[in-house]
Design a protein around this nucleic acid. Structure first.
Lengths: 236, 236
DNA sequence: CCATCTTTGTGCACGCGTTCACAAAGACAT
DNA sequence: ATGTCTTTGTGAACGCGTGCACAAAGATGG
C-alpha cells in the first residue's frame, strides 16, 4: 500500500492513521443525518452506535484530528461536520471522470452520494463510439479519445475505472499520463501505477467470495465436514 | 498432505486469519489466469507479483490452508486452484438474491464475476411493481413480496442489497427472517442484524472520500497549508 | 551418491489498531 | 461555591498482521 508516510511523527493533525481516515466518512454520514434533524450535540456513545463502531474508538479517532468535544455534554454536530469535511478535503470541489459507461459506470454516474459530497462528474467516457452523445445521468457520454483534453481542461485528479478488466491498465496509463493521481478501480485487475498515484480497489466478486467462506464455515459447524482433504485432482 | 479421511477438524484449516481469507480470492483470480494459459507451476514470487502482494505474505497465507508447494519448484497451479476454491466454498453452488434492481442492481446482475465462481442469481427483486417481469441479464424481475418464498424454495443464504438507503433495513429484516445469513450491502446505511448473520458493506462514496483525503494531502505538500486549526465556525 | 542451487515454510520482531479503564474536565443543581 | 454527575480524552496493554531472514527440503546435474 503506497500510502506516503508522514515525515513528521507529529501527534497532532498530520499523523492521522489510515484506519481512522477510513472511518471518517462513516462518522460524517451519521453526523449529516443528525444535522438534518437539527440535533445540536451528540455523545460519543450515540454517534458510535449510529456509525456502527465502538465508542472508545470513535473518541480516539476524533482526538487525532484535534476535534474537541465538551466533557459532560458531547460533540457539537455542526462543528464536527465542518471539521471532518475539511479534513477529508470535501470543502473543495473534486472533478472526477468515469471511464467505462456500462451497467456499472451508469450506476456510478447516477449515484447521488458522489455529487452530494464535493465530487463533480466532469465527464463520462467510453471506448464505444456508438455510445457517444447519449445522455447518462444528464451528462453526454464522450469518446475515450477526449480523455487527455478533458482531464487537463478540468484539472481532474481523480478517475473512476468501470471498464472491463482487459482495458483497465491501458485506461489507467492514460489517466496517469494526463495528470490523474488517484484512481478508484472497479475492474477485477491489479493495476500498476507509478509512485505517488493512489489506487483503491472495489471488487464485487471478492466480497461475495469472502461471504461464501464464512457461510461455508457456519454450515460446517452444524453438518458434517463434506470430506476433508484429498481432492479429486492431485498434483502431478 | 493426505490425511485421508479426517474425522477431526484438525487445528489446521480452522484458524485462517481474516486478512488471509480476504486475499484468497485475489490469488484465485491470478491462478485461474495462469491455469487458462496452461502454466503448470508458479513460484511464490511470480504469483505474488501477479496478485500485487508480498511474496512472504503469500507463502504464509498458503501455509495456513496447509497447501503444500514443492521446494525448489513452486506451487502446482491446478492443485492450488482447487484447494483455494474448496476453502472458500466455491466448489458448491451458492444461490443469491439481488434486491433493488436500479442501475446498480442491474449492473450486479450482469456482472460476470458472480456466475463464474459458484454463485447463481436465484432471483432479482424490486419493490416497483411496474418493473415486474422485465428481463434483466436474462432473468425476470420479480416483486419483493415473493422474497420469502423464493428464499425458502431456493435455499438462499446470501442476499445482495442494492436498494436505496431507506429501504435497506427493512429488506435486511425480511431476508434474515426468511433464512438468509450473509448479506452484501451496497446501500449507504449501517445495518443491524442478529448474531450469526454476516454483513459486508461496499460503499462507493466512502472510497471516493478516502481518495480525496490522500489527494488533498498530496496537494498540501506542495502548496501552502490552507490554514490549520481554527475554523471559521466555532462551537457554541 | 554427492554437491549445488532453488524455493518453500516459518520463527521472530516490529508496528499498527483496538479496547479497556480511568483521571481530568466541565456542566448543572443546590 | 461546592459537590455531584456526565462524558471526554488518553495511557497502557494486548492482539493481529506484516515482512525479514534463514534453515529445511527437495530438485537437478555431474
Amino acid at each position: 500500500m503506497a500510502t506516503g508516510r508522514s515525515h513528521r511523527p507529529a501527534t497532532r493533525g498530520r499523523g492521522i492513521p489510515e484506519a481512522t481516515v477510513a472511518r471518517l466518512p462513516l462518522y460524517l454520514r451519521a453526523l449529516t443525518a443528525l444535522s438534518e434533524r437539527s440535533v445540536p450535540t451528540v455523545s460519543s456513545e450515540e454517534l458510535a452506535a449510529a456509525a456502527g463502531v465502538n465508542s472508545a474508538k470513535l473518541r480516539k479517532d476524533f482526538s487525532y484530528l484535534g476535534s474537541y468535544g465538551t466533557r459532560g455534554v458531547g460533540y457539537d454536530v455542526e462543528y464536527l461536520v465542518y471539521q471532518i469535511s475539511r479534513e477529508l478535503g470535501l470543502t473543495q470541489d473534486w472533478p472526477v471522470v468515469i471511464v467505462g459507461i456500462g451497467n456499472l459506470g451508469a450506476a456510478l454516474a447516477n449515484y447521488g452520494g458522489f455529487a452530494s459530497r464535493g465530487f463533480r462528474v466532469a465527464a463520462l467516457l467510453d471506448a464505444d463510439a456508438s455510445l457517444a452523445g447519449r445522455l447518462v445521468a444528464g451528462l453526454p457520454v464522450r469518446h475515450i479519445d477526449e480523455l487527455e483534453s478533458i482531464v487537463e481542461d478540468n484539472q481532474v485528479s481523480i478517475g473512476v475505472i468501470a471498464t472491463p478488466a482487459g482495458a483497465a491498465q491501458e485506461v489507467t496509463d492514460r489517466l496517469v499520463a494526463a495528470g490523474v493521481t488517484s484512481i478508484l478501480n472497479f475492474a477485477p485487475t491489479v493495476l500498476s501505477v507509478p509512485d505517488g498515484v493512489d489506487v483503491r480497489k472495489v471488487d464485487l466478486s471478492i466480497e461475495l467470495q469472502i461471504l461464501a467462506f464464512h457461510e461455508q464455515r457456519k454450515a460446517g459447524e452444524d453438518r458434517q465436514e463434506p470430506d476433508g482433504d484429498v481432492p479429486a485432482v492431485m498434483p502431478a
